[in-house]
């Protein structure tokens, strides 16, 4: 680096040539060429790339956030597979599959909403978003139904009526598996599906806001495609989390016919 650079003048700055000299006003607001571009960005392309990367960084954080819980799951399942198998058999495979389908359809809707936003069809964007919100609500309703059933079966570890079913206790005792691990499955199940549910709710609220913004901006002719694209990324991520949660929670040696009733 040194030999050639010594010949160059130190700290050379070539100043704004032509097109960029308009940036030079005092309060950073002089580059008002495009009302869709925030003042810190030079142009729409830079803004687009930045907001996308921002969301991708956030999703990387989210992967590790859920990852900590997957780590706990992995450790406890690896060290006591029997307890996890027995506990998992109390979940309803069909309802879980239906919910996976519901989220996959919603992901399709979002993908189509992004497409329409790129094409500038605000009305269709909002139609797809509305569809997603409804599907998200269906997902939550099904989840709520499952959780209620779990409560009646005494499977919510945070509730007073939690009780490990007798036959599960016997089987674990036979195989020298600590019964606490059965409870830990349910702790992780509710923690992870609960956290996932919170993400779904946040997503629905967000889409509600996005719908409002899209409607406003369709009238004023401002751009909204970045917003739809970024919130869409978030929603696909929420879907991906569930894609892993479903087999890990519901499909450990499932029993035909769904929930194990007693």
């Amino acid at each position: 680096m040194s030999a050639e650079s010594a010949t160059l003048p130190v700290g050379t700055i070539v100043h704004g040539h032509g097109a960029e000299s308009s940036h030079g006003s005092h309060h950073g607001s002089g580059h008002g060429h495009d009302p869709n571009v925030a003042h810190q960005f030079d142009d729409a392309a830079q803004q687009h790339e930045s907001v996308l990367l921002g969301m991708w960084s956030f999703l990387a954080t989210e992967v590790l956030f859920f990852g900590g819980l997957f780590c706990a799951y992995l450790v406890y399942r690896t060290t006591s597979p029997l307890a996890f198998t027995l506990a998992s058999q109390h979940l309803n495979v069909i309802l879980g599959a239906v919910n996976t389908g519901v989220l996959l359809v919603s992901s399709l809707f979002i993908a189509l909403a992004v497409r329409e936003s790129q094409l500038g069809n605000g009305k269709r964007v909002n139609l797809y978003l509305l569809g997603t919100i409804l599907l998200g609500a269906v997902f939550l309703l099904i989840k709520g139904y499952e959780w209620t059933t779990d409560y009646h079966e005494g499977l919510i570890p945070f509730a007073k009526n939690f009780q490990i079913p007798e036959h599960n206790l016997d089987e674990m005792a036979h195989n020298a598996t600590p019964a606490g691990r059965f409870k830990l499955f349910w702790v992780l199940y509710f923690f992870m599906t609960g956290l996932h549910g919170i993400h779904v709710i946040i997503g629905l609220v967000m889409f509600g806001i996005v719908m409002y913004v899209v409607k406003k901006r369709t009238q004023t002719g401002k751009s909204y495609s970045n917003l739809v694209e970024v919130t869409g990324l978030y929603w696909h991520f929420v879907d991906i989390v569930w894609v892993f949660l479903y087999p890990l929670m519901y499909l450990i040696h499932p029993i035909t016919g769904g929930g194990g009733h007693h």
Partner: peptide, 19 residues
């Protein structure tokens, strides 16, 4: 952009490290 791929891969790579 390649960058998005890189971000996605790193997230799962780090998760794999932890697990």
């Amino acid at each position: 952009s390649k960058l998005q791929l890189l971000f996605a891969i790193s997230a799962f790579f780090w998760l794999a490290l932890m697990l």
